[in-house]
Design a protein around this nucleic acid. Sequence first.
DNA 1: AGTGAAAAGCGCGCTTC
DNA 2: GAAGCGCGCTTTTCACT
Lengths: 172, 172
Amino acid sequence: MSTPSMGQPHIPTTHRHVGGEPLDDVDRRILAALVEDARVTNKQLAEMVGIAPSTALMRTRALSERGIITGFEAKVDLAAVGRSVQALISVRLRAHDRDQIDSFTARVPHLPGVLATFHTSGAVDYMLHIAVGSTEELRDWVLDNLTTDPVVGHTETTLVFEQIPGRGPLPE
Amino acid sequence: MSTPSMGQPHIPTTHRHVGGEPLDDVDRRILAALVEDARVTNKQLAEMVGIAPSTALMRTRALSERGIITGFEAKVDLAAVGRSVQALISVRLRAHDRDQIDSFTARVPHLPGVLATFHTSGAVDYMLHIAVGSTEELRDWVLDNLTTDPVVGHTETTLVFEQIPGRGPLPE
DNA sequence: AGTGAAAAGCGCGCTTC
DNA sequence: GAAGCGCGCTTTTCACT
């Protein structure tokens, strides 16, 4: 029944997370608001968070400059841009020498349709999340970009029926 | 003929992708700009795309209203918010009856730390992408939220060393 | 549908506490 | 570090093409 790790207490003897100063409550509220809607005006943001607009502006900038906010992006409906088929592809490499891994890591994430590349531990080396137009295209994509690569040992393609958004990265 | 009682909107005689009117080139350029930086001003956006600001505003609104833009979000550095450990967890359910699946689908995506939930085909039923503070917390998370659930048959947790962003959803 | 001009509202530097 | 003022620019509406 014990929940030993909650919030922020236990920090291993080494160092705390990269990036410097911890976030105060105002910062967290700003982040929450911007994660939910990156296009709120500064004035609205200030009101939501309960601070003056000038302060909100300063805080938001500081969060970007400190690298805590890494960007603002529009989310698009995949089907509307002709990518209605999603898949997760687990990839095991054949050789584990450094150069080959690096070249794979450099090449694959930027192939068309790749939404995310996860470099993983365990039996699988990479997990790719991709979106393409059709199952035929999926088959071709895997053949053209993975199967024919001599570095790739084994792949396993899993269709995604549905992607359900999570509650996001912020604690609470 | 139209299909008024089906879940999908009416699809014209030409089988374009779901969602209505196809996107023209201006729409695509707007999307590209907003995916790259959701906070560009409308004026900048208009200039990039080569249209008047009033038109840019109208187009962008239309894209949101048509559901092609599904939102604008700030991306945050996971380590900075105390979530430096990421994992992918494959989940196989024990029972495949509809109610249990639905209850799992309703519960799991909103657990703390869940970034995305993929409902998949094949040997695995779900793939969860989560971010937590430490490996100890990861272990507890899996135990508390998955292992102890009678609906869950089998899980396999894979640590993510690195997540490499893709080239995004847009064609090119 | 796309545009331009005009009014409303905001971003943001500067000053003060 | 946070709030208030004020100018200049942006956003947004609307009549017109």
